[in-house]
């Protein structure tokens, strides 16, 4: 799952703060063709990553 997350997400540092974003869909096709459970799981990981980025920002 970690590898899939890394392959589909990037940390965007262009804005005010670094934010982890989905930049590639995990599977072929459009958004509606994706595995629903998997996208939900990736969303959880993304939220978690962004929370960790926010915490790191606070500590900096």
């Amino acid at each position: 799952m970690q590898a899939l997350f890394d392959a589909t997400h990037e940390v965007d540092t262009a804005g005010m703060a670094a934010v982890c974003r989905l930049v590639r869909l995990p599977d072929a096709g459009g958004a509606s063709d994706q595995d629903a459970w998997l996208l939900d799981a990736l969303e959880v990981l993304r939220d978690e990553s962004n929370a960790m980025l926010a915490e790191a920002r606070k500590r900096a």
């Binding site: 970690q2 959880v44 990981l45 978690e48 990553s49 915490e55 500590r59």
Partner: peptide, 20 residues
């Protein structure tokens, strides 16, 4: 998130753990 003091414990559960 109780320990947001930078201790390793606060970040130990890596993001890939839960869905598996």
């Amino acid at each position: 998130r109780g320990s947001a003091d930078g201790s390793p414990q606060s970040e130990s559960p890596r993001r890939g753990d839960a869905p598996e």
